[in-house]
Design a protein around this nucleic acid. Structure first.
Lengths: 163, 163
DNA sequence: ACAAAACAGTTTGCATGCAAATATTTTGTG
DNA sequence: CACAAAATATTTGCATGCAAACTGTTTTGT
């Protein structure tokens, strides 16, 4: 019983620490975004959108929001602000007049050239600085966490006693 | 050279996968927040604020925002909405009249009783479902990632070649 | 052929979230 | 004591982000 208890406590400890680390990671990502904004005057999502557009050549708004895992209504706003600064254009799709084709302008493409890699760059950089074995394990563990979180999405209430 | 190259590729692969998993985790956290909102009519931050307040008894706005790692101006808004629903009260601190003391109302405390554990509950639940060894490794790896990201916050530009 | 359903994009309304500016109060220094 | 500096909370302005409602267009089913 003693063993079980202390093992549970150890797990609790590491779990809390892991959550804390995730918070730090999210914060670091945000700070990186802020520094990018200072450098080139684009917010994280704005740079990300341009980057996806550059990668794909051109995209419908729906496709772009799928790439970014964001709601189309959110992306509409981001695209508005980019268009207002002449970094991209909206062109109606002749094939399907519901659709809008988004493409970079020359100004947009040029800006991208002097811009850093979008948001996740920081994270990827950190991962690349770690030994392969470590990255493998991290990958595996995170995948497990993500899956567990997705599976148990219903009634997780009171999993923790109030101590 | 062959070995080095494929090892780099393996690392790249796992790094990309890890980023993807982090995205899934963030999304799962958000989905959990949404389900909580459906259940008890409070957003994630609102529940979180009440919970911190309950844990501490009472807090100044500054202290609460420190607990939540949020800007005071953000917390002001959250507190506004909670106060509007009579879940907490603002009382001027007689000791220091700049300060405001936040405390739960009876209604707030009662609501908390039937509320699930705030946001991170989902994540903690998932971590507790994992073997201790795994949680330990995850904790360690995440700590490393967070530290690396914080250290290299300046010029990470172009760490990745455009492939 | 044409009503119904599905789809793409936008608009509106709301809740975060931060930075910068402001008002009030307290503290520290000469 | 006086006055500058710091601290606390708020306000304002802006950019995400989602859900729901709405418009127009295309596809589907009968």
């Amino acid at each position: 019983m003693q063993t079980v208890l202390s093992e549970a406590q150890a797990k609790h400890h590491h779990a809390e620490e892991a959550v804390q680390s995730l918070r730090r990671i999210v914060k670091a990502l945000h700070d990186y975004s802020t520094s990018v904004e200072q450098q080139i005057g684009l917010t994280g999502p704005q740079l990300w959108a341009l980057w996806e557009l550059s990668r794909a050549g051109s995209l419908s708004l729906k496709a772009l929001s799928a790439q970014m895992h964001l709601d189309p209504s959110t992306v509409t706003g981001v695209v508005d602000r980019l268009q207002r600064r002449n970094l991209l254009v909206r062109v109606p799709d002749p094939e399907d007049r519901r659709r809008v084709i988004l493409s970079l302008t020359v100004a947009g493409a040029q800006l991208l050239k002097r811009a850093p890699h979008p948001a996740q760059g920081q994270l990827l950089h950190a991962l690349h600085a770690m030994p392969l074995k470590e990255v493998e394990r991290l990958d595996h563990a995170l995948k497990q966490v993500a899956t567990l979180m997705e599976v148990d999405s219903t009634d997780v209430r009171f999993f923790f006693a109030e101590t």
